[in-house]
Simulated assay, not measured.
Amino acid sequence: MVMGLRRPWAARREPLPGADPAETAAGDARIGSWALALWLLLLTVVVVLLDTFTGNDLPVIPLLVVLPALASVFCTVRQTTGVAVWVTLVVVGSRIASTGAFWDVVFLIGFTALASALGVVACAARIRHATEVARLRSAAVALQRQILRPLPIVTRQICAHGFYEPIEEDRFVGGDIYEVVQSPHGTRVIIGDVQGKGLPAIGVGFAALGAFREAAVREPELTAVADAVEDAVVRHNAFSAGTGEAERFVTALLLGFDGGDRVRAVNCGHLLPRLLHDGSASPVALHRTSVPLGLAALGGEARAAEWIGFPPGAALMVFTDGVTEARDAAGVFYPLDERLGRWVGQGPDEVLEALQADLQAFSGGVRRDDVAVLVLNRPQAAESEAGSRGDPATSAPTT
């Protein structure tokens, strides 16, 4: 998730450089060795005392075989092996000292040894799986860094703060896209929502982002940028059709900032932005909305751009429908405009933090779609200077 200077993946733990992948993968479940030894000793004493009191009529010592199984869930392989050896020794020692039948003793010792060995094997398999998941997660982090840039992004004209939450916790990238590019023609911004979810939607989003990054620098007109992204989505759909996948479209809003009091906008079937200014939040009317990207052949009309006001001190909020279509337990949609009015006097980071927390509380933590939100405002002096230098830590590249 992105919040202010936080990165989209900052909410998730990443392995430290040089860390053992197996130990890192098991780190969340691992318990301290001293604590483990203390609990093991206490449980052993309790079971042995109960076994002494009950005698041969109701032997309790076999219950110790569950300890390696429990350790395999929470401990490392080394700790689980230690528990298994300890349990085996305790059972062997107690049964040798007992007066039970020979084959009963042999059977119990053999069963304990087998259960302990299975616990160690299960622990090793769990850590191996966790290590593979950790490696895949690292690959997903690298993929996201190539697809969606960390926020905030500062250019000469704007500073873009925001957050992004994919619907699936196991995935770092979903069907929502955003990008901010500094170009010779000003700053170009896109936010969009790909139809559908999963890897096919990610593929369409990547194609759209790649085309936008190139066209935003090359094309002087914002409508030409939209047409270039349209062509990329159409080409990707043609390729997908050849592999048996369904065609998809992208609702998107493209904005062009030149440093003035107006912003150029091309709306391709996307939600209206909100203008945060003078203590109020209001939808920005766009009268030339066209069809989503990938469906231009069905529209019959060329895409058109229009100007919207962007007075000094104002901020534009753009978002995907994961915000407006969030619902509570009763099925009521999230009242975005009503809630924004409460926070409009605060800074971008505070507004985003309040919105993110309120969405979580309103929906009870149940998300039905990806959520992407950007707040675009004029940068402060220090941020503007960093953006004009093309500082890689804050500014999107121009190519």
Rank of each mutant, 00 (worst) to 15 (best):
R262G: 00
V105G: 06
L136N: 15
A215P: 12
V234M: 12
H161W: 13
R389G: 00
I31N: 07
V65G: 00
S282M: 07
P59D: 13
V120A: 03
A10L: 03
F172L: 15
R274Y: 13
G244M: 01
S395F: 01
T81K: 01
N377T: 05
G365S: 09
G18A: 11
F249A: 13
L58C: 06
A281D: 01
L89Q: 06
A160H: 09
L5R: 15
S363I: 05
S98C: 02
A25R: 08
R7N: 12
V2F: 08
S33E: 08
P220C: 10
T394F: 15
G186P: 04
F172I: 10
A84S: 15
H129G: 08
L89R: 05
T131Q: 14
M1T: 12
W343I: 08
L352P: 10
Y178Q: 11
I127Q: 05
D193T: 07
S384A: 14
G313K: 00
L293W: 03
R213S: 11
L118T: 11
A252M: 08
G259C: 04
V180D: 05
L89I: 14
P397R: 11
A22F: 10
A315R: 15
H129Q: 14
V263S: 01
E353D: 13
V332T: 14
L41K: 01
S138H: 14
R342I: 07
P152D: 09
M317A: 09
D337C: 02
R378A: 11
T112C: 14
G259N: 03
V154P: 03
T44P: 10
L272V: 02
L36T: 05
T76P: 01
D104R: 01
G242W: 01
A302F: 04
L114Q: 10
Y178S: 08
R248H: 06
T155F: 06
G196A: 02
L275R: 14
F239I: 13
T54Y: 13
F163T: 09
A241D: 12
P200Y: 09
G210E: 13
V181H: 07
R218E: 13
A297V: 06
P379D: 10
A361R: 15
S94E: 14
G110D: 10
R12T: 11
G313W: 01
L67D: 05
M317F: 02
P335H: 02
V229D: 05
L286A: 00
L49R: 14
A238R: 15
A160E: 07
A160G: 07
P379E: 09
L38Y: 14
A361P: 03
R149Q: 09
L355Y: 10
L271I: 03
R171V: 04
D391P: 08
G260K: 00
T155S: 14
L64G: 12
F257N: 03
G390K: 01
A226I: 07
V46I: 15
T251F: 02
D337V: 03
E221M: 10
L276Y: 04
V45A: 15
V366R: 15
V154F: 11
I158W: 07
G322V: 07
H185Y: 14
L374D: 08
A125T: 07
A216I: 07
H270W: 03
H185K: 03
T44W: 08
